[in-house]
Design a protein around this nucleic acid. Structure first.
Lengths: 192, 192
DNA sequence: CGTAATTCTTAACTTAAGTGAACGATCTTA
DNA sequence: TAAGATCGTTCACTTAAGTTAAGAATTACG
């Protein structure tokens, strides 16, 4: 599992064996059970997450309804806005499958970054890259209909459609579960 | 105009007079006429933009139609994904009003950042902050209807509704101009 | 294993956005 | 200033998503 992490990091910076050991000794890995909640609305948090294995999701509760806004799977990183802004969280984070997640605390990372300036560089590259990816994602969402979004998802993240419950997928696509059912039926209809 | 920039920067780091002068001497300010295009689809670019005055927009051309995805106004920063990913741009950037814009080249910023390590820190803070803001924005878009989005815009960026043409606003809201007209009429109807 | 709870699908009806067309207002420009 | 383009609005009609409700399928759990 650590190998996965080092392979990911190596895309940005190269680490010496000493640095790798120092990183491992921090004991950041956490095993999380399906259904567990990592963050609740209204709570303060300093934790960032990096998914090594499994799947977590972020969702709001608006008027009693869950609105799923994102899924994070293998090698996805998430720093909730509440960590950056030092405000109470507006959403929940919960675990969809049994997962192995790297959890880092923003206090801790100040220390790490001063010890290993390389990490700062990686963080900057990462957040710039994420920003660009996020922008493209948003643009794609804006410029397409629910049906196109579903077809896109089928193309780009087909695993999600298998591993995530329909009603969560629906709200991720910006529609109701009933509409997703109908939409899927419509697509099958067309294919025939 | 420079004061505006320094005031913005001071929110993140503090600059000495020498540093300020060095920054000014780079001559990054550019005056851009309404209607001018800053970036075209398919082009490579290394430029980031920081709006000091005026308004620019990003838009895709899909099936012959413009799809506006964002407006950048006073003190907004934009690094197009194509700069990060080193790929041809997927969208256009153009100027909606006569504007004063700070244009920085990513080659140049490597140099600047090595001379002024502070800048690296600011850039990282900025991109983390932008990422958080972008995430919240996206979430808001996903969890609301066109009508709610319009009402939100009216709340949060009322200036846009005044300074931006309706059809650009419409596609920014994810709908057709006719629908925006109708939607506005509907809202007025309700108010009465 | 069986019951309860949750999830998914289907259907009928409502509501809102897309489409195509027309018209007047505004802005451009020759 | 006149002619053409662009823009915003309105309308009738189409299409798709929201809503409410019911029932089937699946999952959770005592």
């Amino acid at each position: 599992m650590q190998d996965k992490l080092f392979e990911f990091i190596s895309k940005y910076i190269s680490l010496t064996e000493d640095e790798k050991n120092a990183l491992v000794s921090l004991d950041l890995f956490r095993s999380v059970k399906k259904g567990a909640t990592l963050l609740k609305e209204g709570k303060f948090s300093k934790e960032s997450y990096f998914v090594l294995n499994g799947c977590i999701r972020t969702y709001y509760v608006l008027e009693g309804e869950e609105r799923t806004t994102a899924f994070y799977t293998e090698l996805d990183a998430l720093t909730p806005p509440c960590v950056i802004n030092k405000t109470p969280s507006e959403y929940y984070i919960s675990c969809i499958e049994d997962s192995i997640i790297l959890v880092s605390n923003s206090d801790m990372s100040v220390e790490i970054n001063s010890k290993f300036p390389k990490f700062d560089i990686m963080c900057r590259m990462l957040s710039e890259e994420l920003l660009a990816k996020q922008q493209i994602n948003f643009d794609e969402f804006k410029t397409s209909s629910p049906e196109q979004r579903y077809l896109n998802l089928l193309q780009n993240r087909p695993d999600l459609i298998q591993r995530v419950p329909q009603h969560q997928l629906a709200s991720y696509l910006g529609i109701k579960p009933q509409s997703l059912s109908r939409l899927r039926a419509r697509i099958l209809e067309k294919q025939r």
